[in-house]
Amino acid sequence: MQSSDQLPCASDPAQTRGRRYPERPAPTRTEYQRDRDRIVHSTAFRRLVYKTQVFLNHEGDLFRTRLTHSLEVAQLGRSIARSLQINEDLVEAISLAHDLGHTPFGHAGQDALHGCMAGFGGFEHNLQSLRVVDRLEERYPQYDGLNLTFETREGVLKHCSRSHAEQLEASEPGGVGSRFLRREQPSLEAQLCNLADEIAYNAHDIDDGVRSGLISLAQLRDVPLFDAYRAAAQAEYPDLASPSLQRRLLFEAIRRMLSAQVYDVIDATREALREHVPASADEVRRCPPLVLFSGGMRERSTALKQFLFRHLYRHPQVMETTGLAQEIVRDLFAAYVAAPQEMKAAFAQQALGGDASMRARAVADFIAGMTDRFAAREHERLTGRRLLGG
């Protein structure tokens, strides 16, 4: 039964569309709680601790990793879900799984691998996350993958090209690829995870960027979303203007910015729900996006992302490291395609047992599963050159 304090349009674990391989219900956990537990215990989830966001693993111990990012998304998502009265457990499961398919070296690795796979369907990290939970995890005797519920898998597949959606639909009619063909929305919980992901990114990239010295508090005065809360914090606590207290000022400004974004999402979503009044989770899918920022907050959030793109993601120091990371991925891809036996046995067997497309996909699966440091070590082993981590 759905909890009495949840909205009727929230996802109900008792009404799940089910798993690809039917299983008996658990005696003490809902279906979404089981999904969360399977994700936390997966090998791919543990690897996230050594997969990075903007700053690579060797550049410092305190920068965010994919694991800490996923935990922050889950925390934000659960807090908002509780206020909106939608399913917290599903939000947590999606949040913890949404980056399982990310390559080593953040977006640099993803872009490089996409280029390597250009002749074989490309590489999409959201689709790779689905491959991880559907096929690549090997934990159960009955099936490949984690056998998660439809709703969690739907949330993991945040984006999907039409060609890949058509392939998914052919193999699983009415499955997680269908909504991209019908231009429908996912569940409220999946929509919330998408927004919590954005909120977390904006906040922790400011923190990591200032910590690294690549952006400054002075530069951030040009960013209205951040500077309004910096100014408010400094007005309330004048001592924070002291150079020795700049870290506290940064943290307080970020905390206030996060809170403002959370409250904005809650208010804007409640207004959208009042306007469209979906009576069920399925009706949510036929509505326009319902979990959203207000217009003003969306504008300010976009401006912050543009600032980070110009001053952090395209900073010369970041770009230099990005170039080396992409060289590692491209070299690994070429080496494994030429000599699949250099990969772990399961991937080598798959690569050697198929055509060129299957070989390339096996190589992409192997590389995508690597941590930053394993990829760097493998590159050094295969090429004799150390590009990162020296």
Rank of each mutant, 00 (worst) to 15 (best):
S3E: 06
D12C: 04
T16N: 13
R24H: 01
R29W: 11
D35E: 14
D35F: 08
I39H: 08
I39V: 14
I39Q: 12
H41P: 02
T43I: 06
V49L: 07
Y50W: 13
T52C: 06
Q53C: 09
L56F: 09
G60I: 05
D61A: 12
D61W: 03
D61Y: 02
L62R: 05
T68A: 07
H69G: 12
A74P: 04
A74H: 05
S79A: 12
I80K: 11
R82P: 10
E88T: 10
E88L: 11
D89L: 07
D89V: 03
L90E: 12
L90Y: 04
A97F: 06
L100V: 03
A108N: 14
L113M: 08
H114C: 12
H114S: 15
M117E: 15
G119S: 07
G121D: 08
G121K: 10
G121A: 08
N126R: 09
N126S: 12
Q128W: 09
F150M: 05
E151D: 15
T152L: 13
T152G: 12
P173I: 02
G174M: 15
Q185K: 04
P186M: 03
Q191Y: 02
L195Y: 09
D207S: 03
G213N: 06
S216F: 12
S216D: 14
Q219P: 01
L220D: 02
R221E: 09
P224H: 09
L225K: 00
F226I: 00
Y229T: 09
A233D: 00
A235W: 06
S244A: 13
S244E: 05
Q246I: 00
R248W: 06
R256S: 09
M257L: 04
Q261D: 04
D267R: 03
A268P: 04
A268M: 08
T269N: 01
P278Y: 00
P278K: 01
A279G: 08
E283Q: 01
R285G: 03
C287T: 02
P289E: 04
L292E: 13
G295M: 11
L304A: 06
L304K: 13
L308A: 07
F309W: 12
R310K: 15
H311T: 11
L312G: 15
P316T: 05
Q317C: 15
A325C: 15
I328V: 15
F333W: 02
Y336P: 06
E342L: 06
L352K: 04
A360E: 01
A364S: 14
A364C: 13
D372A: 11
R377G: 05
H379V: 07
R385G: 13
G390R: 10
